[in-house]
């Protein structure tokens, strides 16, 4: 095989250019999505004490579920615990910007909402926060996706997305639903 060393080097340099170009295109696409479309991972670095979660602060029972504050900001709060979510169902309007906030009093959990790109780990000691807009109405499945003990397979909740007109919070700005 008469391939000169120089020819080999040239072919490798050509290929290196292809490799560099490919990686550059991928990086530019990710940067574009992050900066222009705000597609970034949930990274709010906000702590909460797992030992007192249920006693004080925003994750006490009367604050769980969906609520609208004075400024119209819609926030759903959930506690992920072995082996259930509290509440089991959250009600949210379609086509509105909503914020989901989660905390765990015990071990690591995580959630995804099927058919959407809502996804976060729930790490005890920290609050997990996801911003999203649900575009499809109906009952979406929200399972725990991190192994949390022997009951893990039975741990899931429902996200009920209703048309904006049907989303009617009560006088105190809260909206609740019952899982079927």
């Amino acid at each position: 095989m008469a391939v000169s060393e120089e020819a080999i080097l040239r072919s490798e340099l050509r290929w290196t250019i292809v490799v560099t170009g490919t990686i550059t295109v991928i990086m530019v696409a990710i940067l574009y999505a992050g900066i222009v479309h705000h597609i970034n991972p949930p990274s709010n670095i906000e702590t909460v004490d797992p030992k007192t979660l249920h006693l004080t602060g925003e994750f006490t029972e009367e604050n769980l579920g969906t609520s609208i504050d004075a400024g119209g900001q819609i926030t759903a709060r959930m506690v992920a615990t072995q082996f259930a979510f509290q509440p089991q169902c959250i009600l949210l309007p379609a086509n509105k910007r909503v914020t989901l906030r989660f905390a765990s009093p015990d071990v690591i959990h995580g959630i995804l909402v099927t058919g959407t790109n809502v996804n976060t780990m729930i790490v005890p000691g920290y609050v997990s926060q996801v911003h999203t807009v649900f575009t499809r109405t109906g009952d979406l499945l929200m399972p725990c996706h991190e192994y949390c003990g022997l009951g893990h397979s039975q741990m899931w909740a429902t996200v009920r997305v209703v048309p904006e007109a049907e989303f009617k919070p009560d006088g105190s700005g809260r909206a609740l639903c019952d899982a079927r």
Binding site: E12, W15, T16, V18, V19, T20, T22, I23, I26, M27, I30, G34, N40, P41, P42, S43, N44, I45, E46, G110, N119, T120, M121, I122, V123, G125, Y126, V127, S128, Q129
Partner: peptide, 27 residues
């Protein structure tokens, strides 16, 4: 990436370095 205890800055930095690890495989 989906963890709440790290910032986007370091997630992005390490993602960029991850992209570079594609290089030895492509070579």
């Amino acid at each position: 990436f989906m963890d709440p205890q790290q910032s986007n800055a370091f997630k992005f930095l390490q993602m960029s370095l991850t992209a570079l690890v594609a290089a030895p495989t492509l070579l």
